[in-house]
Amino acid sequence: MKATVTVMLKNGVLDPQGKAIEQALGHLGYQGVGEVRMGKIIELDLAETDPARARAQAEDMSRKLLANTVIESFKVEVA
């Protein structure tokens, strides 16, 4: 199964990259852009075929390595 992990900085943690993108969009003339947050997407090819177990596995990986839960939150999608 393919698991996609999206890792984002938690709300409240300063995101200087997001802020820089926000400013750059402003310079390019895009109006009405609110807060920009930047994160990362990690795609995993899993041998597991059961969606629930694949999800559990990816969530475990996320907690242990892929995200730093001090500053980051994550979301797992399985397909």
Binding site: V13, L14, P16, Q17, A20, N68, V70, I71
Partner: peptide, 17 residues
């Protein structure tokens, strides 16, 4: 050490990027 949980907090990108 922070990632290993031996010290609290985290080190983020420098504010200047």
């Amino acid at each position: 050490l922070t990632e290993a949980g031996l010290l609290p907090g985290a080190l983020l990108r420098n504010a200047s990027l």
